[in-house]
């Protein structure tokens, strides 16, 4: 094969790959989650901070014994985040307000377009059609990119095992319950029905209906309906979400939107640039070489007689 043909083929091939990838990237921006995805609506006006959900999660996921009992209110003195030993935690806010404290359960929100999944280069994460974001600990290499990528600071990390360190987080009880259409353990135990399980699409309607029916009870916003492209866990609140520790600065675009334009360029850079620049380099070098060749030839010719 001639060098010129080879370079031409490289260029055409590279462009095709680059364009193909970019189109796929654009298409993912309009993804609004699986139509049959399930979810949980958290009504913070109902939660009484009993922490039964934490206990149920602990038992269902066979997590280690807690530092203190699940009915110890002392934990509310500090804001907590989910860890590898507790996939869900309840925090207390607005303690000083006359309307009484507001409790907020925190766990993986199971994004429609998860940033953890996007950031994982070994594809350990999967967004199932039921809506759960699960992960395969056998594939995980322990890079912890997902911990940095998560806009909600969710994934915890198990440092205890040096040989098999793995990321741990809520999986919506996928293996034991969700797969069979059953609600997660936290929902089932909640005495106040602060957690409502159902199809995500139905829950959004339900949430707006609660706001419409009792506008004095809620602020007019469903957190998670649109944030970072939508999440399977949705929240209703009696006060501004920023007062309950929610990040209200998040964009409605999924996290992947921040990087997909850039990532779309990667195949182009990887495939076209080497071919292009080595082509230019070779051509330049070739001309130089050819020139030299002619020179030597002519020199030789000159010296021949």
């Amino acid at each position: 094969m001639k060098r010129r043909n080879f370079l031409k083929a490289c260029l055409i091939g590279g462009t095709t790959i680059a364009l193909g990838k970019t189109n796929k990237g654009w298409a993912s921006g309009s993804f609004e989650g699986y139509p049959e995805a399930m979810g949980v609506l958290v009504d913070t006006t109902r939660c009484i901070g009993c922490r039964s959900c934490e206990a149920a999660c602990n038992k269902e996921q066979k997590l280690p014994e807690p530092d203190t009992s699940f009915d110890d209110p002392a934990v509310f003195e500090h804001e907590r985040r989910p860890t590898s030993k507790a996939y869900t935690v309840v925090n207390r806010y607005q303690k000083e307000q006359p309307s009484g404290p507001v409790y907020r359960k925190v766990q993986c929100n199971h994004c429609n377009e998860p940033a953890c999944l996007t950031s994982c280069f070994v594809n350990a994460y999967t967004k199932t059609k039921e809506g759960a974001v699960i992960y395969n600990s056998k594939i995980c290499v322990g890079c912890r990119n997902c911990m940095i990528a998560c806009p909600f600071n969710v994934p915890g990390y198990d440092y205890d095992s040096a040989t098999n360190p793995i990321v741990k987080k809520c999986i919506l009880c996928y293996d034991t319950r969700l797969k069979y259409g059953k609600p997660p353990a936290c929902v089932e135990i909640c005495p106040q029905e602060a957690l409502t399980f159902g199809h995500r699409a139905d829950l959004i309607k339900l949430a707006h209906e609660r706001i419409r029916a009792t506008p004095e009870r809620y602020v007019d916003h469903v957190y998670g309906e649109k944030e970072v492209g939508g999440t399977s866990w949705l929240y209703l609140a009696p006060v501004g979400f920023d007062k309950l520790g929610f990040d209200t600065t998040l964009s409605n675009d999924p996290i992947i939107s921040n990087v997909k334009d850039f990532l779309g360029m990667v195949p182009m850079v990887l495939s076209i640039w080497p071919a292009l620049f080595s082509g230019i380099h070779l051509l330049c070098k070739n001309q130089e070489h050819d020139g030299h060749g002619h020179d030597t030839d002519s020199n030789q010719e000159d010296t021949k007689p």
């Binding site: 039964s52 206990a55 149920a56 014994e65 530092d67 203190t68 009992s69 699940f70 110890d72």
Partner: peptide, 15 residues
């Protein structure tokens, strides 16, 4: 047992 009540009063890690 479910609520791990035997651990009541144990200091939470952050404390």
């Amino acid at each position: 047992a479910f609520y791990s009540s035997n651990r009541k009063g144990a200091k939470p890690a952050h404390a």
